[in-house]
């Protein structure tokens, strides 16, 4: 083992054992994405509540839009997180200073369909569900991460 390699191994061991440096790679998936072809097949003014439910399955959310319309949302979440955490203990104190860098690729997508009172599709929007659904309609993740 060469001297540089040995030094690197010792340094990694020391830093790792002290939990000073942590590298993380996380992936979190919630629900399944609506296929673009299913989305494209639903035409405003033509598709009905029945045809939308048949093609997309059960929605995640439903809410009233004014007095005459209602909306259904299909949502999915795919998060990819790559993190580097560096923590430096401070002498003579019980606390530590830390620096944290995370590249969080948060993907909370959804498809929202708005129907009229007769059940005809009138509006279709795809994007971030947090922007498309009102606050009261959104609910927390069904299962807390372990």
């Amino acid at each position: 083992m060469g001297a540089p390699l040995r030094s690197a191994a010792v340094l990694a061991l020391v830093l790792g054992a002290a939990s000073c440096v942590q590298l993380s790679w996380e992936r979190h998936d919630l629900h399944s994405e609506v296929a673009p072809e299913d989305d494209a097949a639903l035409v405003e003014g033509e598709a009905t509540l029945a045809s939308c439910l048949e093609r997309l399955g059960a929605p995640v959310l439903a809410w009233e839009v004014g007095a005459q319309r209602f909306a259904l949302a299909w949502g999915w979440d795919k998060q990819r997180e790559y993190g580097v955490s560096i923590s430096v203990p401070l002498a003579d104190t019980s606390s530590s200073a830390s620096f944290n860098y995370d590249d969080v690729a948060s993907r909370l997508h959804g498809l929202v369909l708005v129907f009229d009172e007769g059940g005809t599709l009138r509006l279709k929007r795809r994007g971030y569900l947090r922007d498309l659904a009102p606050e009261g309609a959104r609910r927390p993740a069904l299962v807390s991460e372990g």
Binding site: A12, L13, L15, G16, V21, Q22, L23, S24, W25, E26, R27, H28, D29, L30, H31, S32, L49, L53, G57, A58, P59, V60, A62, A141, L142, V143, E145, G146
Partner: peptide, 19 residues
């Protein structure tokens, strides 16, 4: 392993809506 942590969570749901 050492300083590297890999985590994966997968949540899937059975849902039924009755109108």
């Amino acid at each position: 392993i050492l300083i590297v942590t890999l985590v994966n969570s997968d949540v899937k749901t059975d849902r039924v809506w009755a109108f």
